[in-house]
Design a protein around this nucleic acid. Structure first.
Lengths: 193, 193, 193, 193
DNA sequence: CATGAATGAGAATTCATTCAT
DNA sequence: CATGAATGAATTCTCATTCAT
């Protein structure tokens, strides 16, 4: 039941927002009563907190795995990270949107910790960029910090518009993004790509 | 007074969210009473609607101007659009965040129209990409639609983290983004950039 | 309206208890709505706090006036205090019962301050006893602290049972108490009172 | 288990109040579950009722024993009653406070019966006073009814402030009260106490 | 123009109690 | 004997909105 509530809440929070979804909405969708909700969660905030942690912990773990790989090239790691996050949309779109939108409703402590974990994600990407520069894979004059934020912008924003059932699959979109990030949009006449 | 209310509301909605900001909060910050608010606005939603239109209309207008330029090269137009939107953060950060976050609270009609205008922005960017491909400025195999969404992701996401008073100015960030979008991150050994 | 709410609340809290009286009960008795209550009071606790302060401040003031009198004998002061507090029941019975019973529902700060003020009352009575001992009015071997608590017990307890409309009027009861406190119950055969 | 629940409940009700103590609080403190509680008690009210009866029955019995003594002088009986009730605080403080504070939560029948038993206590004290007057031990002009209520006020009120571990022991306090009740506070210059 | 009192429809949360196992 | 899941009614509080003045 705990999982059921969480799953339905993710759907509703993702669709309509945290504030906009009442406990009533949640339990009604599950044909149970408010009491049941409060038997499993001590507050709406606790539920939200758990949703946040579940999503971010999973993400951090997967990104860590990619980033800490010892033999992979950095541009491959970057590709992997982008693909991971975009393809994640298939199963975690709502959770992602919740994370990007509802953090302010967390309690102070949870907020801080989630913020730290989001920062870890950013650090991993930055680390890949920096290492790639050192290894001569990436252009030397990149600002790793801002470029990382740009890449995360591309990826995170896609949670807003990318419909897994739509014209382009997450996989295709991920590939397009990867290509764009790696090579830019400009045609370099002198190179024979 | 109407402008004063709107301005303060933008600040509060941007900082704390639409739902989270009560009419009470707004009028209290302005040392007026609720009656005053309702003299100038018929509802909270009307206020929100106006904030949305003001921001998006202004944006569309500026982007149209860039996109409809007849002599500029398309990569220059792209640069201009990115710079426009990022530098906009200096004066319109809150409005932007409101647009990206609170659209769901609009009435049906306004929602549709705002959505249409947001789509126009996207179309302009797509148009620039497509034309650039035709003109041989951009790589031929780009998916203009997804690439545009990527670019908008970079730009729109920066409303979330870019602090105009921070380490990097919007101008610097815009330049880094432009460079990244045009050239990608990869070092092309054969070219002598 | 604020006064009306307070007055009705004192009646209801006094009769049925703070916890047992819902906001609904209060506004229903006044034929207004819950919104009205919260227009005048920010919380049920604020209302309770105000009731406490109004009662205790008034009491402290009156007792101070008696205690600080410069020409009165101390036994007369003691008589005055007892009469004051018992006769108070006529107009303030509910408030008194609220004070004696509902203090725990105050917020921490208010609680502390009310406790301090209640202690002041006790101190005034102790002061009268002590001074009376020094002046040779009262028996020298009295424990002023415990005796004061005994006197306050007599008086405060009467808020529980003394019905101003009952067989004995507050004035009569006060006189009986005064006599009892001053002379005790024992018949001293050797004295010709 | 029944006793364990009762004992813990007395502690919690006495400390925090009947309404303020949830079944959850009780079973949690005992590391059992709600089911267990409801196996032993059919309702929270039944528990409260039992606590009331246990306390008052015990008190009535002890007071009856004192009052019905045939050889003791009445002033001695009065002394015994006061001492009994004050010293009772050592073991029954919480129960006493519950009785004085939570009676309103009893069901109608229990309420009536408890009220009757409380009245019995009062009657015994009145009886002692009256008999003492007849026997010439007490002053003839005492109003036995009001004086009794005064004495009970002294005693019952001490449940509110008398800390058995505090500066004055219940025994000492009882002695001071007894002295005060018997002799009053006034110094009778003509007698040589 | 502006005020401020009043409304009423929800919102989150609590909690005694039930009941199948 | 004991558990723990589930209930549902009640409670405090919020807030956009109305309206007479």
């Amino acid at each position: 039941m705990r999982q059921t509530i969480k799953k339905e809440s993710i759907r509703l929070f993702g669709e309509n927002g945290f504030k906009e979804t009442s406990i009533q909405d949640i339990v009604q969708a599950l044909h149970v009563t408010k009491g049941t909700f409060y038997y499993y969660f001590s507050s709406k905030e606790e539920l939200l907190t758990e949703i946040h942690f579940e999503f971010i912990d999973n993400l951090v773990e997967q990104i860590d795995e990619i980033a800490s790989h010892t033999t992979k090239k950095n541009h491959q790691k970057l590709v992997d990270v982008v693909r991971l996050m975009v393809i994640n949309i298939k199963s975690e779109r709502s959770s992602g949107n919740i994370l990007f939108r509802e953090m302010r409703h967390l309690g102070e402590n949870s907020y801080t910790e989630i913020a730290r974990k989001r920062y870890e994600v950013r650090e991993r990407v930055e680390g890949i960029i920096e290492e790639g520069i050192r290894d001569g894979e990436f252009r030397a004059n990149l600002n790793s910090s801002i470029v990382s934020l740009g890449i995360l912008g591309i990826v995170n924003w896609s949670y807003q518009w990318l419909n897994p059932e739509g014209k382009f699959s997450p996989e295709e979109v991920a590939n397009i993004f990867v290509d764009m990030i790696l090579h830019g949009v400009l045609l370099q006449e002198e190179d024979n790509r």
